[in-house]
Amino acid sequence: MELTVYLAGQIHDDWREQIKSQAKDMNLPLTFVGPMEDHERSDNIGEEILGKQPNAIFKDEAASSINNLRTDILMNKADVVVALFGEKYKQWNTAMDAARAAALHKPLILIRPEALHHPLKELSSKASLVVETPQQAMQALSYIFES
């Protein structure tokens, strides 16, 4: 059995690579998908496909439509969603993706520091599991494959 894991969260550091490396080290049969990690491409994809937009708002809306299409398709194909909330970056996209996963009844693992317990309490109650580190998330996924 192989699982597809959607990695939701900010794209400003290498947390996804850390998770992929841990999964490889643990010999987990996981395939990872997620949002476009090239921030400039993500911001400009609307104009790349739909042409020059009249202003920044229309540019953002065009890019958002295409990025949402990507997220809808990849998340629908995913078996589980792992959403990382950190303390450094604003987490609007992570919250949207985690809420989308909950609405789709996808198994959802939230990774968040204890300091974010209160602001994420409602979303946490919708998750299958809440952990504090990416390593804990990988340990939980590893448990699925034990006989």
Rank of each mutant, 00 (worst) to 15 (best):
P35N: 13
D79V: 04
I111M: 06
L108N: 09
G86Q: 08
S142E: 13
A102H: 05
H105T: 02
L50C: 11
F85I: 05
S42W: 13
I57E: 02
A140L: 04
A23N: 06
K106N: 11
S147H: 12
K88S: 03
Q22E: 15
A98I: 06
D13N: 15
I49V: 12
E2A: 05
G51N: 06
L69F: 12
P107Q: 09
T94W: 07
I109Y: 06
L84K: 10
V131W: 08
A95S: 07
G51Y: 06
L123H: 04
T4W: 02
I57G: 00
L123M: 13
S65E: 09
I49F: 08
Q91P: 02
K106I: 14
M36I: 15
D97K: 10
Q135C: 01
I45N: 04
D13K: 12
R100E: 07
A99Y: 14
E17G: 14
E2G: 00
G46L: 06
T71Q: 08
N44T: 12
G9W: 04
P113L: 06
R16W: 10
N76L: 03
D14E: 12
E61V: 01
T94Y: 07
R41A: 15
Q22V: 15
L30P: 03
L123E: 03
V80L: 12
R100Y: 14
N44H: 10
E2N: 09
K59W: 02
K126T: 12
I19S: 08
I11W: 02
